[in-house]
């Protein structure tokens, strides 16, 4: 069994590790950028979902549903390989960030919507009874509670999007996964290399996952 051929591990050079770490930068770049953009768009979509007007609050679904119900990889390919034939050309990085942002936005919007909706109606009534206007109730009562419910769930979403960002390697972007593949091929040490790569992803997301759980326990409350 080759796994126990320890001499072979010498094939893994420091330069390979540098390449992997550099690629981790690309992964972080793609992920953080699209999470930021996605959160912003998702917040807007989520708030529109909470609108009173039954037509207006359905509008975001036109964008959200296809994004939530199809594989990310199809979305990536549609944007990167498909859009050029209708005249929209972009670099792999742009396509990756665009797709991942929209994807994040769709899921984030659902979280925003469900967090706000889970605040009981009675709180609105109580707010009106005290003489607050709609905006004041939103800001002073609803948002402060909804955000407590939202944050742990949002972190969990961010973690899952970090894992999903590995799919941008299919657009030949040199991210952590792509670098892992190349180094694994070069050194012929798949166990070691994919182990390291998985470990790096783990190091990025596990503390966040723990933090989300901690927040859920500390400030999470059921209504």
């Amino acid at each position: 069994m080759q796994v126990f051929d320890f001499a072979a591990y010498a094939r893994f050079k420091w330069s390979d590790m540098r390449m992997i770490l550099k690629a981790m930068g690309v992964t972080l770049h793609v992920t953080l950028l699209s999470l930021a953009i996605g959160t912003l768009i998702g917040l807007i979509l989520g708030l529109i979902r909470c609108a009173k007007n039954p037509i207006v609050n359905k509008l975001p679904l036109i964008v959200m549903e296809p994004l939530r119900n199809s594989p990310l990889i199809v979305q990536l390919f549609l944007v990167f390989f498909g859009l050029p034939s209708v005249g929209i050309r972009m670099k792999a990085m742009q396509a990756a960030v665009l797709t991942l942002s929209l994807n994040t936005a769709a899921f984030f919007a659902v979280l925003v919507h469900s967090s706000i909706k889970s605040i009981p109606e009675a709180q609105w009534e109580a707010g009106y009874a005290l003489g607050f206007n709609k905006f004041q109730i939103y800001w002073k009562i609803i948002a402060r509670q909804a955000i407590r419910l939202l944050i742990p769930q949002a972190i969990t979403l961010y973690i899952s999007q970090l894992q999903c960002s590995s799919l941008v390697s299919f657009l030949s972007l040199m991210d952590l996964s792509k670098a892992g593949q190349q180094v694994a091929q070069k050194t012929m040490l798949p166990f070691l290399i994919f182990g390291i790569v998985a470990g790096l992803y783990f190091v990025l997301s596990f503390p966040l996952a723990r933090f989300a759980k901690y927040l859920e326990k500390r400030i999470g409350f059921t209504i």
């Binding site: 999903c164 590995s166 390697s169 892992g180 992803y201 783990f202």
Partner: peptide, 12 residues
């Protein structure tokens, strides 16, 4: 499993 990408698990 939850904190590593499926793609990497698959390659692994």
């Amino acid at each position: 499993l939850r904190n590593t990408p499926f793609l990497i698990q698959l390659f692994f």
